[in-house]
Design a protein around this nucleic acid. Structure first.
Lengths: 127, 127
DNA sequence: CTGGATCCAGCTCGATACTG
DNA sequence: CAGTATCGAGCTGGATCCAG
């Protein structure tokens, strides 16, 4: 994901490059503020579009749809349309999505844990 | 980090809002492709500026300095300047940085684990 | 070698208006 | 309610140049 050194037979090298490029692509999709906040907001729940907009503070209509499409494309959320009037669309994490959520949880815990450290460091740096 | 519901006394609510806003700020700083790739590249090593530029594939001079400053400000990396000619600057993760790195490792493992799932899902979605 | 500063093309994102 | 399309201001990020 980070280095550009490849070893092994030419075929293996090609595989590694393919994997690496896809990995980088996935990483770019997922290492993004809104995507992670949406995943964290979904958690174990099923939420509707409007529910998500309320839960993920500050997200715009556009960013929400855009990121939901991306997450659906990558198989991290499933989108269920109930053909009623008015329409009702529900979003849930897949197993892969829940897997990612576990690591996002880790990031949140990390944030709380080092809160003070970060606040101090910022004050020192800024002053 | 995600919801806007606050309970408790007004003071506690104010604290929570402050914490929430800072948490969001930290999250925005850190949930960013280059920052995470830099942290992952550093790992347990000490690297120089040029070393990092080589390790983090595709990062530009500007993005690297910008993110390094941000990570230093937040106390995730330490920057050591050796007053030689030419200058020699080394970057290392702090304890907080290593803590975050652990969760980034989780994300990388997650990527490898769900590689196939994601590839399949994309093909299905795109076609 | 490290890194600040500037320029500007291109993209992001919010706002708005419109559909089923 | 959910979603798409469009438009424009503003930010992002790459290229380049200069300095210590």
């Amino acid at each position: 994901m980070v280095t550009k050194q490849y070893t092994g037979t030419p075929d293996e090298q090609a595989d590694l490059r393919r994997a690496d490029s896809l990995g980088r692509e996935i990483f770019s999709d997922v290492a993004n503020k809104w995507a992670l906040l949406i995943i964290e907001a979904l958690g174990e729940r099923t939420l509707r579009f409007s529910g998500l907009r309320d839960e993920v503070e500050g997200v715009s209509h556009k960013m929400l749809t855009q990121n939901l499409r991306m997450l659906e494309r990558n198989g991290l959320v499933v989108r269920t349309v109930h053909p009623t009037v008015p329409p009702r669309v529900e979003y849930t994490l897949t197993e892969a999505g829940r897997g990612l959520r576990a690591t996002v949880d880790g990031m949140c815990e990390w944030t709380y844990r080092y809160f003070g450290h970060i606040e101090d460091s910022r004050r020192r740096f800024d002053g």
